[in-house]
């Protein structure tokens, strides 16, 4: 808990303004989606589902980017006594909470909007599928970025799948959605979060054994 407290204090308390501004962007994207909402059959049907997640990804990445300076980029934190628990527990847990949390907030807001305005639940399940993909991407790339030496390179490539969605998703799906029932959407989202969290924890265990971020031996520290 001590390491989680450290990470949250560094990203939210010390940089609250950057978080606030990006969260305002997320809210603005959600409001735009509510106003410009498209029904099934329209060409922009799935764009409404992707946009808030792309902005949510930015919110998560801002947190990860500022933390690089305090976790892997800081010369003392690389060899601090909390280094083992920070790297094997704190960072994957933090990435899961941030990535899953922002996706949860977006999905809850969208669900309330759909239920209140009388849209069918297929909208929500389509949203959840994208949510699952983006959240898995955020959790795994955040863990790699904060754990590996020079890992911020991951941040550049992590955006690419979003840009390549135009190639991956076929035209029919862009207009009509995936057509999955709601329970399947929820299951895919929860499954994606759990699987990516497990991959993150396993990856950080392996990385910690390989990387040179170890606490200094106590014999080297002079007594006061």
């Amino acid at each position: 808990m001590k390491v989680l407290k450290y990470l949250f204090r560094r990203s939210f308390q010390s940089r609250w303004l950057a978080n606030l501004l990006t969260f305002i962007l997320v809210v603005a994207a959600m409001v735009l989606v509510f106003v410009l909402h498209e029904d099934r059959g329209s060409e922009d049907y799935l764009i409404c589902k992707v946009t808030p997640h792309a902005v949510g990804m930015m919110f998560a990445f801002i947190n990860f980017i500022v933390l690089i300076a305090d976790v892997t980029g800081n010369r003392l934190m690389r060899s601090a006594p909390i280094s083992p628990s920070l790297r094997t527990f704190g960072i994957p847990m933090y990435c899961t909470i941030i990535g899953g949390g922002i996706a949860f907030v977006i999905n809850v807001a969208y669900t309330v909007f759909c239920l209140a305005s009388g849209h069918d639940v297929l909208h929500i399940s389509d949203m959840l599928v994208f949510s699952a993909a983006v959240t898995a991407l955020v959790i795994i790339s955040g863990t790699l970025c904060l754990n590996i030496a020079y890992g911020s390179i991951v941040m550049i490539y992590a955006w690419m799948p979003i840009g390549l969605l135009g190639f991956i998703v076929p035209d029919g799906v862009w207009k009509n959605g995936f057509g999955l029932p709601l329970w399947a959407g929820v299951l895919i989202f929860i499954g994606a979060v759990v699987v990516s969290a497990v991959i993150s924890f396993a990856a950080s265990q392996i990385i910690y054994k390989k990387v040179d971020f170890k606490p200094l031996p106590q014999t080297n520290v002079p007594h006061a």
């Binding site: 980029g73 010369r75 911020s152």
Partner: peptide
């Protein structure tokens, strides 16, 4: 003294990553 080689290598790697993209 302040950053080790860490920060410089990170930025150069990011530059290379952009060149690759």
């Amino acid at each position: 003294i302040f950053t080790g080689n860490y920060t410089l290598k990170t930025v150069f790697q990011m530059l290379l990553a952009f060149v690759a993209v």
